[in-house]
Nucleic acid binder design. Structure first.
Lengths: 334, 334
DNA sequence: CTGAAAGCGCTTACAG
DNA sequence: CTGAAAGCGCTTACAG
């Protein structure tokens, strides 16, 4: 049960016949060390199975090798596989660069809660935020000089690098598809309009609609909240206020699935009577009957983009926002 | 952009008129400090907005305040909301105890890959594993004395504390329900049989079946892999080999949903002709039509159990495995 | 290209 | 109950 005693610089230095400073240089890739001595150090490291103590390294260098991924617990965000997948993309990219991911799941609302506390404590070299409703914390943290990346488009222009899916373009393409399929009366069920993603998707819908020369009739735009229930609720409302609705663009697949269920329960055929397009290409898009036509976003790529933006920042490079493309996936519902 | 200079013990000590040792004692809750001096320290801390540098603390004390959550990337586990939710439960419990969660998403197969390396490097005080196919890494790490918790039942008896859902009991209850509903010929679509959860669920099914006095006919037990496709595939096979099948217990909701879809496509009514029970009570159980009767597991509780088992270990307490209960949720499919 | 030495900010026997 | 001092294991000017 006694943990194996780990060797330190002093034993490596002794074994290689060099100073600890030289050991440090070799292990940190300093090119200036003479190849012969570098090799001696490397041999000693290999032979002794040496592993650098990152805590000590962090204290001495001021760099922890840790990046925080901050997820707002308010939204029980983790029960949606979306953010889990993003996180996994982030984690992979970072670990390829020798950096570990610290996960923080907690309410991010306040600008001086535990999260802010921790992020300012110097234990992490940077933070990636899954921002949804509020920029307050991020904005406040900017002063601290902590490198940050936002996953999702921030509400205000924060001058902080972010990554996001092309929400506007995706929604535009989805709505356009409905138009091309001959739909005349196309409704939109939005996501939680407090999020920028929902706003952008609504804008994409509006843009496509506008190009037909009209504007959406009152009641055709329904404010949902990304939940299955809201999809069902608004489909029900739509059939009352606009019985002749023949197309629905829903801001995510879950609401689209809810809408399809209600439409069928109320005697409408999908896609014959009403065509439905979702967003995400979540698993549910494939299991719903009819399977959903939807806008696919590359969630892993989004996470990887966030990770690479962070790496670039740590390397002092200039960074600009990354918008990942979407793709129209045509299935049976439209 | 200049990070605010953070105060250290020396400035707190000076402000409070005590030694650094006393500051340390107060901040670590040492009761032996005289209340008056403790208060002076606390006042200085509050006034200066002091936050302890955890890296320095970790180096000096040998405790990092970090727990690793290790997720096997092989299984693209994160695209399943299940593990994300478990992680979120773990993270919440740990942070309540002042411990942060380091997320490691990477292939865990090898016992000397990057993960093992990191875990042995002393940067974390413990590790929670989401173990599925192999115990090798965990088993190897046991020698190092690192406190560990396994989420899921390990394959071999490892003498390492674990948490798991009552897979056996849940599957038993689900199958029993089918029997009670009058099903005579009940099939089982298993999960990936390389996982202990799938085995235990199969055992639960077998136990309930056995109590009816018979044994499953050949072909009634289908080896799936938790995927939608395998649910569809095996439902198709079942209708060929056992056209009179009238009940299906699937090891998760995804396969159950796939089975329902195929049954309907091939002209069977659910639940009139064939009753179907799933497992998990995932979102899809509610969106499938008919909605799935299923076995709910409390995923957040599972994560919290894992977190609390880790905390208990760190406190030197004796720990034993925790099995969280399941619940039969009756909907329309059975 | 290399080493001696100071230092990162805490913790913890030890002595009192 | 308290302080002086050594130490955790690295990194990094500095001088050569």
């Amino acid at each position: 049960m006694v943990p194996a005693p780990r060797p330190t610089y002093s034993v490596i230095a002794k074994a290689a016949g060099v100073s600890e400073a030289t050991v440090s240089r070799v292990l940190n890739g300093d090119e200036s060390v003479h190849p012969d001595r570098a090799k001696r150090v490397q041999d000693a490291v290999d032979k002794l199975g040496y592993r650098k103590n990152r805590v000590a390294s962090a204290l001495a260098s001021g760099r922890s090798g840790l990046i925080a991924v901050v997820i707002d617990d308010d939204l029980s965000v983790f029960s949606d596989p979306f953010w889990g997948t993003v996180t996994s993309g982030v984690s992979r990219i970072l670990s390829e660069n020798g950096i570990h991911t610290v996960l923080m799941v907690s309410p991010v609302g306040s600008i001086d809660g535990g999260v802010a506390h921790y992020l300012k404590s110097g234990e992490v070299d940077g933070a990636i935020f899954f921002v949804l409703h509020s920029d307050a914390l991020v904005n406040n943290l900017k002063k601290s000089g902590l490198p940050m990346v936002i996953a999702g488009t921030p509400h205000s222009s924060l001058d902080i690098p972010f990554v996001d899916t092309d929400n506007f373009g995706g929604a535009y393409a989805g709505t356009k598809h409905l138009i091309n399929q001959g739909c005349k009366k196309i409704a939109c069920i939005t996501g939680d309009i407090g999020t920028t993603a929902a706003k952008q998707r609504l804008d994409g819908y509006l843009q496509a609609f506008r190009e037909t020369g009209g504007i959406p009739a009152k009641g055709l735009i329904c404010e949902g909240d990304y939940s299955l229930e809201s999809g069902m609720h608004h489909a029900r409302m739509l059939l009352e206020t606009h019985p002749d609705v023949d197309g629905i663009f829903a801001s995510n697949d879950l609401m689209a699935a809810g809408a399809v269920t209600v439409l069928q329960d109320l005697g409408r055929l999908v896609p014959e009577d009403v065509k439905v397009v979702g967003f995400d290409d979540a698993l549910i898009a494939q299991t719903t009957r009819p399977a959903l036509t939807t806008i696919r976003q590359d969630v892993v790529a989004l996470g990887e983009a966030a990770g690479s933006l962070m790496i670039a920042q740590l390397n002092g490079e200039d960074v600009k926002p990354i918008i990942t493309p979407t793709e129209l996936i045509i299935r049976a519902s439209a």
